[in-house]
Amino acid sequence: MQAQPLIAVSNVEASSRWYQKTLGLKSGHGGNEYEQLLHDGRMVLQLHRWDAHHHPHIGNPEQRPYGNGALLWFWTDDFDDAVDRATAAGATVLEGPKENSNAQHRELWLRDPEGYVVVLAGPYGDVGM
């Protein structure tokens, strides 16, 4: 089994560009209603425009913050490169980079343009570096 989270956004193309620039993902579908974002050829995130098609369980775009209680968590072998990419992209940093001694890795907490919390985490044992 593999998770393939889907988030609802107001502008699929702008969100896709943000995730591509900030996380280094690639477009696997493209379009203004739906997008699949890939890493090494595997889909890791889906974007769906709030008002495209009728999906009663997607949520309510009038209620903020989006994803309250859920975080988009990405693990990476190249934490330093991920931090550099997020910084170069001008991503909004909520916290970090920091060491999480409980999880034994480093983390960078971001907010995407739609308001979702995105966490970049280094591999286990990636502390004190």
Rank of each mutant, 00 (worst) to 15 (best):
Q4N: 05
P5F: 01
P5T: 02
P5V: 00
I7W: 01
V9T: 00
V9K: 00
N11F: 06
V12K: 04
A14G: 07
A14W: 10
S15M: 13
S15K: 05
S15T: 14
S16I: 10
W18E: 07
W18Y: 15
Y19P: 13
T22D: 09
T22I: 13
L23G: 13
L25Y: 11
L25N: 09
K26L: 13
G30E: 08
G31D: 02
N32M: 04
E35T: 06
Q36D: 06
L38F: 08
L38P: 07
L38I: 07
H39P: 04
D40G: 08
R42H: 15
M43E: 12
M43V: 14
Q46H: 05
L47D: 01
L47Q: 04
H48K: 07
H48L: 11
W50E: 06
W50D: 03
D51E: 15
A52K: 08
H53I: 05
H54T: 14
H55K: 09
H57M: 12
I58T: 00
G59W: 05
G59S: 03
G59N: 01
G59L: 02
N60G: 07
P61E: 02
P61K: 01
E62R: 06
E62L: 04
E62W: 07
P65Y: 00
P65E: 03
P65I: 00
N68F: 06
N68S: 09
G69C: 05
L71S: 08
L71N: 12
L72T: 14
L72N: 10
W73I: 13
D77I: 11
D77L: 09
D78A: 12
F79Y: 08
F79Q: 00
D80L: 07
D80A: 08
R85C: 06
A86K: 04
A86R: 01
A88H: 09
